[in-house]
Design a protein around this nucleic acid. Structure first.
Length: 219
DNA sequence: CTCCGGAACT
DNA sequence: AGTTCCGGAG
């Protein structure tokens, strides 16, 4: 799988710099859990709410009344589940690892297992935390990436781990490389390669079988 | 007012 | 298939 033309074109047209700015690792973890099935704007509101109540820390999340957490995360949707998951996450880190810094310094494979054992953290969320909060080279394979690769005629395996391996092999190994690629996928996915694609202005139009088909269809 | 899309997980 | 969903677009 050759991602070079794709990567070059996207870097020139979109660029993926300064992506996922957050005030510390806990904020990344919180954002990763809250952003499931919602927009990032809603997550920013929720994080601001948590900060205003001084709950953007493990002790606060672990001990706050669930009702208060629910109020904070309400704009992200599924707020009851998400409030519970945030609290469970905070308690898990405190009880199983002792502190945030001990949690973050856990060896990669064990850390990933610990993340996956949390309710509300699946493979994709675990990898986004590893990549953006911890700084370990795990590529995030999200729905944007799958949709884009499929339309480009390079559909990824359904199996997450298999898909991740395929992409990691095709990219320069490393945190910066994986962060940039993921950021480019998200930007392209949000701006052009949407569920209903905007092919005409897409920077990958001439590289994409799907896009060429659409253009021909529209004359 | 309805419909749909949203940094997915269980 | 449901999440005891939200916000913007149409």
């Amino acid at each position: 799988m050759d991602l070079e033309p794709l990567h070059t074109r996207l870097t020139q047209s979109i660029g993926g710099h300064d992506w996922w700015r957050a005030d510390g690792p806990l904020e990344v973890i919180t954002g990763a859990m809250l952003t499931q099935q919602t927009t990032w704007g809603s997550v920013e509101v929720a994080i601001r709410n948590l900060k205003e109540r001084e709950l953007m820390n493990l002790e606060g999340l672990a001990s706050a009344p669930l009702k208060v957490l629910e109020e904070c995360v309400r704009p992200t949707g599924f707020y009851r589940v998400k409030a519970t998951r945030l609290q469970t996450m905070a308690r898990h880190i405190l009880h199983r690892h002792g502190s945030l810094s001990e949690f973050l310094s856990t060896e990669g494979t064990r850390l990933r297992q610990s993340l996956l054992s949390m309710s509300g953290v699946g493979l994709e969320t675990a990898d986004s935390i590893l990549l953006y909060a911890v700084g370990l080279p795990f590529l995030v394979v999200d729905t944007y990436t799958r949709r884009i690769m499929e339309r480009l005629g390079m559909a990824l395996p359904r199996d997450y781990e298999e898909a991740r391996r395929r992409l990691e092999e095709a990219l320069p190994r490393g945190v910066e490389s994986y962060r940039e690629f993921h950021a480019l996928m998200v930007e392209l996915g949000k701006q052009y390669c949407r569920p209903r694609p905007r092919c005409a202005p897409c920077p990958l139009l001439d590289l994409c079988p799907h896009g060429m088909k659409v253009v021909r269809g529209n004359g």
